[in-house]
Simulated assay, not measured.
Amino acid sequence: MRHNVATGDVATDDAPQIAFYKENHNDEYIPFITFSTPAREDRDGICEDKQKDTNILTSININIVTYLKTSFISSSPLFQFLSILSSGYLTHATAFGSLSLGPLIAYSIVSTPGSLLFPHLAAAWNVGVFCGMSSPSIIPNYFYLTLLLLLLSIIWLSFLRYKILEGYGGRLGTTVFLATNLLLPALIIPTTSVNWAVYGAPTRTYPTSIAWQSALCTITASPFTAVLTLALRLGGRNLSNPVLAGNLSALLLTLPIVAIATSTFEFTDGLLEGVLIGSFVGMSGTDIIQNYIQFGAAGVLGAGWNLVFKPFFNGVVILGFEAMLGCALVVGGKGVGRMLKFKVDGGGGIPNP
């Protein structure tokens, strides 16, 4: 006889030989749980299935890691976007957060380490840095900064794809200038306290916006930095990356300027603006601007555009755009010179005297 574990009843020997019983109902024994051990071949099949599942998961993990590694090395759009986003936040926090170092110093501090650590992403990193320099007077909070960075990423990737302004110094900053001036009138001004005075106000005139001492500092510092950047690029193999060379020259000049600046010297910003414009000019491709004289000339012209736009675009990052215009004038001047020389030499039908 056996004991029914569910009901406590005693089962007779005539009961079916089953391990457990649920209840004794109408004198019929109803099985509660039946255990069965799979055959050996079934167990082997189960193990093989589990091994296949493990192999699939391992393969997926390896493929993801390989994809991310390849994308990072090849500077894929994903990592271009991540570089812009991270450097933009970092620069804005450094410039206007608890440190409050200001945009010009924040640029030098954030741009150089990023370019050193990720040289293949240096351009995208610096695009984000320029965006992060935008003043809180036009970018009220991080929500609008995020929108600006997203729009900027689209514009930058378009510049890369279609090779827009390729080789021109200030190309990176130009994308920021475009993105900012698209987002400001379309969204920021209509929805925030930012008003149209950003683009100009009666109180901001040339006499009130420009001091001749500051202008002289800008016009002097810009060509000097442009020439220094070119010298760094040509003199060191590790500095052949134009963006890294521009970042380093800006850092080398910014640190001593900040160190020696005193409260009695009112034109530090003029010096720093000249340094940044010159560093942007110095990033130009040598197929666009060929020698030290041309780089210096582009630096002077870029500083000149800085004075032209001084009363306007208050808080907008415009230094890169000004550098690009300086480079464009040099390139345009060279084109006009070649055309005139071509005509004088007889190529245009004008006899050579």
Rank of each mutant, 00 (worst) to 15 (best):
M1I: 06
M1Y: 09
A6L: 08
D9V: 11
F20I: 05
Y21T: 15
K22C: 05
D27M: 10
D42R: 15
D44E: 15
K50C: 05
V65G: 00
S76D: 07
Q80R: 12
L82C: 14
G88N: 03
F96P: 06
S100M: 07
A106C: 11
S111Q: 00
T112V: 10
C131D: 01
M133A: 13
S134W: 04
Y144A: 08
L150T: 11
L150D: 08
G167M: 07
L172Y: 00
L172C: 14
T175Q: 11
T175N: 10
A179D: 06
I188D: 11
I188N: 07
P190F: 10
P190R: 08
P190H: 02
T191V: 06
S193V: 15
A197D: 15
T218Q: 09
T218N: 01
T220G: 07
S222F: 04
R233Y: 09
R233W: 09
L234T: 12
L234V: 08
G235D: 11
R237F: 01
N238C: 07
S240I: 13
P242E: 07
A245R: 02
A250D: 01
L251W: 10
P256L: 11
E266H: 15
D269Q: 09
G270F: 05
E273W: 02
L276H: 02
I288G: 01
Q294H: 09
G299W: 07
W305Y: 12
F309R: 04
K310L: 12
P311W: 10
G320M: 03
E322A: 08
V330D: 01
V331W: 10
G333C: 05
K334L: 14
V336E: 00
V336K: 04
I350G: 00
P351L: 14
